[in-house]
């Protein structure tokens, strides 16, 4: 039995107060184990982003408890959350979100610099990761000089840089063509096969089908769908 990397106990998230109170996420309890490959689906406005922000430690639940790798993060302050994000979570965004002034190599090593990894070691690791996503020859290019698919692969390398236990991918193929999209999904699956937990938000039923588990979110309620 694999250990749980994410455990939510009755977490909910509400915005506003009184009449304008919005229940973005209602009492949700799920367990995600190490090595899981999860697809999160649901229409827009369903609470997908809220759920992702919570398990990505970008936001705190209004009530309930959330454990990441055994740590209760619902009580942590901003800086402690930043540390959890840095050490436990790798983000991949729909719009790549690379720093435009830095080249691919520097983008990948940036989060390692926040973790205090030494420069030499960082560059070595960044080169290795960029090699893994097949970008060894484009390391010194800036995001504006790379295609969408290439930028997303840099983002994957960046997400892996601090050796996280969870990869959170928010519509990773949403902005790239089909061919690049399947290549990116292939990389994510490779990562998963190596034992990494991968959680991806998607609209594409074909991508969802490739996951081991599917979580469907509707009106702030999370339910398991049989894959």
């Amino acid at each position: 039995m694999n250990k749980d990397v994410i455990v939510t106990k009755n977490i909910s998230k509400t915005y506003g107060k009184g009449d304008v109170k919005v229940h973005a996420l209602r009492r949700t309890s799920i367990n995600i184990t190490l090595g899981d490959y999860i697809a999160i689906i649901g229409p827009s406005g369903s609470g997908k982003s809220t759920f992702m922000n919570l398990i990505g430690c970008l936001d705190k639940p209004s009530s309930g408890k959330l454990f990441i790798d055994g740590t209760d993060v619902s009580q942590l302050n901003e800086n402690q959350l930043a540390t959890i994000r840095r050490e436990k979570i790798g983000f991949i965004f729909q719009k790549y979100n690379l720093i435009p002034t830095l080249n691919a190599l520097e983008n990948v090593s940036l989060s390692m610099s926040f973790a205090g990894v030494k420069n030499k070691e960082r560059l070595k690791r960044a080169e290795k990761l960029l090699g893994m996503v097949d970008l060894s020859k484009r390391m010194l290019h800036k995001p504006s000089e790379l295609s969408g698919g290439e930028q997303q692969r840099v983002a994957i390398a960046r997400a892996l840089s601090n050796d996280p236990s969870i990869i959170l991918a928010d519509e990773p193929t949403g902005n790239v063509d089909t061919k690049s999209g399947s290549r990116i999904m292939g990389i994510l699956e490779d990562i998963n096969n190596k034992g990494e937990t991968v959680i991806t938000v998607t609209h594409d039923p074909n991508i969802a089908k490739r996951a081991k588990r599917i979580l469907k979110i509707q009106d702030g309620v999370v339910s398991e769908e049989n894959a």
């Binding site: 800086n79 994000r85 840095r86 050490e87 965004f93 979100n97 720093i99 926040f114």
Partner: peptide, 16 residues
């Protein structure tokens, strides 16, 4: 602003 958001998401603390 956008870059700052990215840096914070990938683990930059307020101090960073």
């Amino acid at each position: 602003t956008h870059d700052i958001g990215i840096m914070k998401a990938i683990g930059a603390t307020n101090k960073d």
